[in-house]
Amino acid sequence: MNYALFLGCKIPSKVPAYEVSTRAVLGRLGVVLHDLPFDCCGYPVRSLDRDASVVAAARNMALAARAGLDVLTPCKCCFGNLRHAQRLLDEDANLRERVAAALKAEGLDLPTSVRVEHLLPVLARGVGLEAVEAAVVAPRAGLRVAAHYGCHALRPSAVTRFDNPMAPTLFENLVRATGAQAVEWPRRLECCGEPLHEANPTLSDRIAQGKVADAREAGAQVLVTACPYCHMRFLSIQAGRPDALPMMLYPQLLGLAMGMTPRSLGLDA
């Protein structure tokens, strides 16, 4: 399997361990990652200028198309926005024309057949749960994990096609594949609070705190994410707290179960 790795803006600068662990795990599972000169996915400008967001997204996908690759991103916001842009291009011929013209100025063609995938579905469906399970040599038996879904991959499901938006199972299945136990927690599908952090920090904090408390009440020993934004949010609201619920990125959990060293997965401990 070959993919162009789309890291987005946050992972390299703010959550480098996510890149390290993603590369380590996928490399072992036979997924070959290629690096292309990608830029911003367009998500940050989506609400202020929709067209600018679509152009930014389309340009990235055009780069992948030129290299003959599909896109894999570990970021749920990038994933959501790239798929969102694909949908807007599909439904709006006028927009399609203008974007194509902008791409042409850079010698790129409108991408029509690039598939954009998030890390989790690639693991669960591309690599396959059985293959993931088969690669586990050090099962995390007894570890109680709260899997946080993250909004922009799951919804709107008509656009993202990530999993059943009402009762997803993909993430829990991947957690179970590592031998760990996936706890049921009521707020697992709720927002982490990151997108409104700038506008209303106290409210954003309260949303995130509520989620962490909910996961803890459900008996979770570790909160696992698969998105840099969610990860950063939960880390920052728990910073300096003695009762902080430990955080992990999914490829770190999987990597440990595959017998990799914490160091090779960007884990300090």
Binding site: P156, S157, A158, N164, P165, M166, A167, P168, T169
Partner: peptide, 20 residues
């Protein structure tokens, strides 16, 4: 009721298209 039925349907592996 909606959430519980959706969860039950999801747990049985039904492929859902909610907004279609």
């Amino acid at each position: 009721l909606k959430g519980a039925l959706e969860a039950a349907v999801g747990a049985h592996g039904v492929s859902r298209r909610v907004q279609s």
